[in-house]
Structure formats: C-alpha cells, structure tokens
C-alpha cells in the first residue's frame, strides 16, 4: 500500500527565523505530503539520521543567517555515505556563489525569498519517489 510522500524539514546552524520553513511545511502538508519538522539548531547528522529513519523522500534545510551552503553540502555528503538517495533542497538567504557551489556539490534546488509557494510545492512533489 502506498503512503504519502514524506519530507524532512530542518533549520540548520543557529538561525532562528522559521516563518518561511513553517509556511513551506504548511503548504506541503496541504498538498498531501507528510512533513517531519525538526525545528531549530540542527546538525547535519541529526537531519540525516532522521531522514533515513523516517524513510524520507526529500530533505529541506533552511537558514537565513549563514551556513546554508556548508551545512546542506554536509547533509548531501552524509546521505551519500549512508547510501541514502534522498534529494536535498535549500531555502533561505545566501550569496550567489555559495548557492552555486552547493548546487555543484549535489543540492538539487535552492529557493530564496519571494519564490512562489506553488513552485516550491511542485518542486518538492516532483522529487518524491512515490509521487
């Protein structure tokens, strides 16, 4: 029996701005996805352990105050080490070159401020293996 697509969302580093990630969680849930939100101040290994344990389809990490590229790339690397083929999406604020090297390192998409919500939802949905 198929289950709903499952997404793990988390704030990384020390950034406490969670309005955006909570809004995304709400819209993903309304679109039929199951969302596991880890809250603020997560380390990459916590996110990866949760994503594996929850058999997540997509991981979304958020930061508006630095560290987005560094932490998200580590999430990608740790997932790969565990053999978990789970795409990672980033959301928040970072300099263009930081986003560029995160994408080069395997982050699948980045969404910044002002991104249409439906586009974000569609992108998450499109990446879920059970969609």
């Amino acid at each position: 029996m198929s289950r709903r697509p499952r997404v793990v969302l988390a704030k990384v580093g020390l950034d406490g701005h969670d309005v955006g990630v909570l809004l995304i969680a709400k819209h993903l849930t309304e679109a039929g996805m199951e969302v596991v939100y880890l809250g603020k101040r997560n380390l990459p290994e916590t996110i990866v352990a949760t994503a594996v344990a929850e058999d997540a389809d997509v991981v979304g990490v958020s930061s508006l105050s630095g560290g987005l590229g560094e932490f998200s790339v580590e999430v990608v690397r740790l997932l790969a080490e565990q053999g978990a083929d789970i795409p990672v999406i980033t959301g928040g604020i970072a300099e263009d070159d930081e986003i560029g090297w995160a994408i080069d390192a395997g982050v699948r998409h980045h969404f910044g401020p002002g991104e249409p919500i439906q586009h974000v939802v569609d992108t998450f949905y499109g990446l879920t293996s059970r969609a």
Binding site: G13, L14, R41, L43, G66, G69, E70
Partner: peptide, 22 residues
Amino acid sequence: DLPAQLGFDPDHRLARAQVGRA
C-alpha cells in the same frame, strides 16, 4: 554574530559558517 547572540564560541560545530557573518 549569531554564535555570540546564542552563547556559542566560534569553535562550536553549530557555529560553522556563521562566525563573524551576521
């Protein structure tokens, strides 16, 4: 910076890439 606002030293893992940034 955020580490100082939240009581973390620059060498804490959660502070990475945020030391001296905001």
